[in-house]
């Protein structure tokens, strides 16, 4: 009987240790690679600069020649509710459709299972008012940010979509939708900063471990930037070059990003 008991105890220990082995062990003190991919699409089609022909919610046909936007201030919430904020200096990315090397925001986060991700579409007001020495990398106005910056009203352009549409009568049918506006330095100005939070559980919870790299694949549907809250018509508004006219587009693009899948 004593022997039987000890066998039972031993096997229980063995079983429980087996069970323990089957679930991944996360060490919150260990950092692991996590990439967030921004895959630009137009409705049901992959976005093709210059060649792809798309139709907006107003029924106008158009082509896109340039698409660039900032994503910054990434935060990840894990299964037990802990929020990890990526250090701000490592948290600015400029997604440029013409340069595939920019399509993924490469983050380093503690190991864990993450249930949601949030980020700012644009450049937060704090960084927008920081000393020029803090504006390096994708924020360098003589570098990557050279065409993503309003010099006459100091501030970054958050989202830039240029293209052509036969519905625009003037200027070779060119449209330029440049959205910016962080709220102003000293007096209130339009604020088009948008924080986007996405649930990650429905389409594959990212399981981040140092032994591998995990990719959160997001779909960015530019048609949704042109419709949703406000239907944008290129024939009516072809040029947006300051903050207030960009507000309807910013309200629209809050809903343009969805989680498609996770590569664990």
């Amino acid at each position: 009987m004593k022997k039987f008991l000890s066998i039972a105890v031993l096997s229980t220990i063995l079983l429980s240790s087996c069970k323990k082995d089957s679930t991944p062990e996360y060490d919150p003190n260990v950092k692991a690679d996590l990439s967030v991919e921004f895959d630009n699409i137009a409705g049901t089609a992959d976005l093709q600069l210059n060649t792809g022909n798309y139709t907006n919610a107003a029924g106008e046909s158009f082509k896109v020649t340039k698409l660039k936007y900032y994503v910054s201030n990434f935060k990840l919430t894990n299964a037990n509710g802990t929020v990890y904020t990526v250090p701000q200096n490592d948290s600015y990315f400029l997604i440029d459709e013409s340069d595939p090397a920019t399509h993924e925001a490469e983050l380093s986060v503690p190991e864990g299972e993450y249930t949601s991700v949030s980020f700012v579409l644009g450049v937060d007001s704090l960084r927008n008012t920081m000393d020029v020495s803090q504006r390096t990398g994708v924020l360098d106005v003589s570098g990557a940010a050279a065409d993503m910056y309003w010099s006459w009203n100091s501030g970054y352009i958050f989202f830039k979509m240029d293209g052509t549409s036969p519905s625009i009568p003037a200027m070779g049918g060119v449209f330029q939708y440049h959205v910016g506006g962080f709220g102003g330095y000293s007096s209130p100005q339009p604020n088009n900063l948008k924080t986007i939070t996405l649930d990650l559980t429905a389409r594959g919870t990212p399981k981040v471990k140092a032994s591998k790299s995990t990719n959160i694949h997001l779909m960015v549907d530019i048609l949704k930037a042109l419709g949703g809250t406000t239907t944008m018509s290129f024939a009516t508004i072809a040029m947006i070059h300051s903050a207030a006219p960009g507000t309807p587009v910013a309200n629209n693009y809050t809903n343009m990003i969805r989680h498609d899948h996770t590569e664990n």
Partner: peptide, 8 residues
């Protein structure tokens, strides 16, 4: 007053 910092 579009520019708030002499550096910019």
């Amino acid at each position: 007053g579009g520019i708030a910092d002499l550096d910019l």
